[in-house]
Amino acid sequence: MSITLTTWSLEQTSASDLRPAAPPAGDDVRIARAEVPSPEFARFLYTAVGGDISWNDRLHLSYKEWQEIVERPGAEIWVAYEKGTPAGYVELDPQDDGVVEIIYFGLIPAFRGRRIGGHLLTEGVRRAWDLAERWPDREPTRRVWLHTCSLDGPHAMDNYLRRGFRLFDTTVEETEEATTPGPWPGAHG
C-alpha cells in the first residue's frame, strides 16, 4: 500500500542553539557512551527502538556492514539506561567539514513518555558538539543536523524543536508502507 511520507531536516549551527531538557526526576537514568564497538549491541538498539516505527533501512545489513558502521572513526552511540536497563540511544555519524548527523535517536517503547527522551537528546546533542574532543583527528563541530519523518513517534518533532533545532528542509514523497516487525517477528502482533 502506498503512503505519503513527509521528511523534515533540522539543524543547529552553534552549540549555543541547544536548549537543554531537565533530567528526569531521581537518579535512576544515566547516559553512557558504548565505547566498545559492537555490531550486536548496535543492531539490538536499532531494532528495539525502531521496530514499531518503521525503521527498516538497516535490517538487511550483514554483520560486516554493521561492524563498519560502529567502527568508523568518530561514530558514537550514547545509550540511556534506566536502573541498568537500556532505554534508548543516540547514534552520531561524523561527516566532513565539522558536520555531525544524529543518524538515529529514540526510546524503546516501554520507556517512552517518562521524560527520558528530552534528556537523552540533550546529552546526544552535547556529545555531537564536543565530538572533536574525543576524536583529535576531527575538526571541531560546526553543525549538528538530523531528520525525522511522519512515521516517527508523535513527540519527536516537538522534542527536536524544544532542544533548539531549526527546520531547513521538508520533502514529501509517495512510498510503499513497510511492515514493522518489531524487535523480533510477532513482537507487536
Rank of each mutant, 00 (worst) to 15 (best):
S2Q: 14
T4F: 00
T4K: 15
T7R: 13
T7P: 06
W8F: 05
S9G: 02
S9K: 01
L10E: 09
E11K: 06
Q12T: 05
T13L: 14
A15R: 15
S16W: 00
S16Y: 02
S16F: 05
D17S: 08
R19M: 09
P20F: 07
P20K: 01
P23W: 12
P23H: 13
P23T: 09
A25Q: 14
D28L: 13
V29L: 07
V29W: 02
R30P: 01
R30Q: 10
V36G: 02
P37L: 10
S38F: 05
E40C: 00
A42N: 05
A42V: 08
F44D: 12
Y46I: 10
Y46T: 12
T47Q: 02
T47C: 04
T47N: 06
A48I: 06
V49A: 00
I53G: 03
I53M: 07
I53T: 09
W55K: 06
L59R: 14
L61P: 04
L61F: 09
K64V: 02
K64A: 05
K64E: 07
W66Y: 15
E71W: 04
R72K: 11
R72F: 04
G74Q: 06
A75F: 10
E76G: 06
W78Y: 11
W78R: 07
A80G: 08
Y81C: 03
E82S: 08
E82P: 01
E82Q: 14
E82D: 00
G84H: 06
A87S: 08
Y89I: 04
V90Q: 03
E91W: 11
L92H: 03
P94A: 07
Q95M: 15
D96V: 05
G98S: 01
V99I: 13
E101K: 12
I102H: 03
F105P: 07
F105V: 15
F111T: 07
F111A: 03
R114E: 07
R115S: 10
G118Y: 07
L120N: 02
L121V: 10
G124I: 13
V125P: 04
R126Y: 01
R126E: 12
A128D: 03
D130W: 02
A132K: 04
A132W: 14
W135M: 04
D137A: 11
R138L: 15
T141P: 09
T141D: 09
T141E: 06
V144W: 05
W145D: 13
W145K: 05
L146A: 07
L146V: 04
H147R: 13
T148H: 12
C149G: 15
S150T: 13
L151C: 02
L151R: 10
G153T: 14
H155K: 13
H155E: 15
A156P: 00
A156N: 12
A156Y: 10
M157H: 13
N159K: 04
Y160G: 02
Y160K: 05
Y160E: 03
R162L: 01
R162Y: 10
G164E: 08
F165L: 14
R166M: 06
R166L: 09
R166I: 01
L167C: 12
F168L: 04
D169R: 11
T170I: 12
T171W: 02
T175V: 14
E177Y: 09
T180L: 00
T180C: 13
G186Y: 05
A187F: 00
H188A: 06
H188C: 10
